[in-house]
Write a protein that binds this DNA or RNA. Structure first.
Length: 301
DNA sequence: GCGTCCAGGTCTACC
DNA sequence: GGTAGACCTGGACGC
């Protein structure tokens, strides 16, 4: 196995330890090593080489990426890995407008102090959409199981039990029976299959969503055409794209809001939306931060 | 070990 | 536009 190391500079104030523990890191082909604060991922490069890349905190506000591969790695391969992790870690997202906004709200002073706000995402929108569909109407345990079986059944094999995330082509070429019987994605199976086939057939270009010139409402309308993507899923995908002007309300968020802001009584979605409306284009992220404050502060202690 | 109940969003049909 | 019921899995629980 060949091993190469890449260095990745982090923006000032970037909280690497906090970012890598956000939700997606628990879903393969990501893997988290809590003790060593390391995030790894199996990735197929455009050269066809399959690598496992592992980030760890380095010196002077940087992380190192150790890249393992059964083949010799060249400069282009390593640059691609660097680019993949720039996307995953959201290194180019600018959170200073959020911190400026929250400076007016003392109850959120902890956000900038903690360097909070970033959560990891997948290198492709396709993977983000598939994973989001897998979270719908499912416990976290079920989501993890579906995604793991999806990679094991359809992803390129790296070594041992490690697989990459399936390509749209791999998803498109499977069958609903396999998804139901082996991946156990249940009634989501035809949605996943249709997504893969629409992407491969060119009817749906989910990667264009990342740089879309449209506003979030227009983009959301486009997302809702995808079977299996409803209101929650579309809002979550917008969040992953770096747009935070819709609230990704799921049952946990509603329950948490009731505990924190409504004396334990259920609040309507409209009430929750009104509560975070003052935060404008950042309201979705502010809600996420508000709901997760306890967890985040515990994590950075 | 088996059966039952429940939680978790989205889709479709219906009003 | 709003609502009810079906969809499917896995965990919790009682027997």
């Amino acid at each position: 196995m060949n091993l190469k190391r890449v260095r990745l500079d982090l923006p000032e104030g970037y909280n690497y330890g906090l970012s890598i523990f956000s939700g997606w890191s628990q879903l393969v082909p990501f893997a988290i090593d809590a003790e060593n604060r390391a995030l790894s991922r199996v990735q197929v490069l455009s050269s066809g080489k399959i690598v496992r890349a592992t980030t760890r905190e380095g010196d002077g506000g940087a992380v190192t990426i150790d890249v393992e591969c059964g083949f010799e790695l060249d400069i282009e391969d390593l640059e691609e890995v660097r680019g993949v992790f720039e996307i995953i870690l959201r290194l180019n997202d600018d959170f200073s407008p959020l911190y400026d906004l929250l400076a007016r709200y003392p109850e959120f002073s902890w956000v900038e102090e903690a360097g909070a706000g970033r959560s990891i995402r997948c290198p492709t929108v396709f993977e983000d959409v598939v994973k989001t569909i897998c979270t719908t109407n499912a416990s976290w345990g079920l989501t993890k199981g579906i995604v793991r079986r999806l990679c094991e059944r359809l992803g390129e094999h790296f070594s041992g039990e490690l697989h990459a995330f399936p390509t749209p082509e791999a998803l498109a070429s499977t069958t609903e029976d396999i998804l139901r019987a082996e991946v156990k994605s249940g009634y989501r199976s035809p949605f996943l299959l249709e997504l893969g086939r629409s992407v491969v057939g060119g009817d749906l270009d989910v990667e264009s969503w990342r740089g879309s010139p449209f506003d979030s409402a227009a983009l959301k309308k486009e997302m809702l055409v995808v079977k299996g993507v409803g209101d929650y899923a579309a809002n979550n995908i917008l969040h992953l794209l770096g747009r935070h002007d819709f609230l990704a309300l799921d049952s946990w968020m509603r329950k948490r809001y009731a505990e924190l802001h409504n004396d334990g009584e259920p609040a309507s979605d409209r009430e929750i939306e009104d509560h975070y409306a003052p935060f404008g284009e950042w309201r979705g992220l502010v809600m996420n931060l508000d709901m997760s404050k306890e967890y985040i502060l515990k994590r950075i202690q």
